[in-house]
């Protein structure tokens, strides 16, 4: 009972904190919408695989609310089924790269000295390389046809920016009074990192994760668009865009929705992520939370 009540209390409080920032709340609602669209809606809307030659680029109607594509397939069903891969890859990439960044960044900041110099030199070097061309070239060498492999590679490409950011954050937090106090009380390094520094960095880490997610959406969409990424059953928004693009959908007035529906889906998903970061600051601020 008390556990259930605790969970309910936590949810209420978190929702309240999210709603403190209007713009952030808008982002939160947007994300919820996309999660329902990508993970729940496919249970009700089957993926349309039948091509209908008589219904190519038909305008929106009661039967096809977003019209049909270059093969006469229902665009709405493509949009519903196109979110899963995008969101899963984005989240995995964000999580992996944030993990790498937290480990390397805090190691760098806390150990200092040669380790710090080495990690920072590596990060500097990595930042000088334009990642998207590198990714495109890599894709010709490594078959990126697995969600995990792709996420791992995307994460490895974006570690440097995040590591630098986490390092500077740890460096500044390390000098706060409460950390000094814990240190003078003889608390262990583990205690200082996990109990004193990390809780005060959670909002920062969460925001980094979201930005890493947006970078992942950018990169995977770009790869698909260049035709360098093909999953066997990938129907992601980017695939719909790429198909519409190569079939010349941009040149016809009636094919507007074929290319625009997935474009707008990705754009709105990115926007929701970015707007949501405004709320994350409040959600993870320990000062705004009360115990049960």
């Amino acid at each position: 009972m008390t556990i259930a009540r605790g969970i309910i209390h936590w949810f209420r409080q978190t929702l309240g904190l999210i709603a403190r920032n209007k713009v952030g709340f808008l982002g939160f609602v947007g994300l919820l919408f996309f999660i329902v669209l990508a993970f729940v809606m496919p249970l009700f809307v089957p993926l349309d695989k039948t091509s209908r030659v008589d219904k190519i680029y038909s305008p929106p109607s009661a039967e096809h609310i977003l019209g049909t594509d270059f093969q006469g397939r229902d665009i709405f069903s493509l949009v519903v089924h196109g979110g899963r891969d995008v969101i899963v890859i984005a989240f995995l990439t964000g999580a992996i790269s944030t993990l790498i960044a937290v480990v390397l960044g805090s190691t760098s900041a806390l150990l200092g000295g040669a380790v710090d110099s080495a990690i920072m030199a590596a990060a500097d070097f990595w930042l000088a390389i334009p990642t998207f061309p590198l990714l495109a070239v890599l894709a010709t060498q490594i078959k990126l046809n697995d969600v995990w492999l792709l996420s791992l590679i995307l994460a490895l490409l974006s570690w440097a920016t995040l590591t630098r950011a986490i390092r500077s954050q740890v460096l500044s937090l390390r000098q706060r009074d409460y950390v000094e106090a814990a240190r003078s009380l003889g608390m262990s390094n583990g205690h200082i990192i996990f109990k004193e520094i990390m809780p005060n960095m959670m909002s920062y880490i969460a925001i980094s994760l979201v930005f890493a997610m947006t970078a992942a959406v950018y990169a995977q969409g770009g790869l698909v668009f260049l035709g360098l990424l093909s999953f066997s059953d990938n129907n992601s928004w980017a695939v719909t865009i790429q198909l519409a693009w190569t079939r010349g959908a941009i040149f016809f007035k009636d094919s507007f929705l074929n290319i625009m529906a997935p474009v707008i889906a990705i754009a709105l998903f990115q926007l929701s992520l970015v707007l949501f970061t405004r709320s994350l600051e409040e959600v993870f601020n320990p000062r705004l939370r009360t115990g049960v």
Binding site: T214, G221, F225, I250, I259, A267, Q270, L271, V274
Partner: peptide, 17 residues
């Protein structure tokens, strides 16, 4: 916030279309 969050190639496609 709008223009900095949408991927550049999507903005290019939107403008083009």
């Amino acid at each position: 916030s709008l223009v900095s969050s949408v991927p550049n190639y999507l903005i290019a496609i939107i403008l083009l279309v």
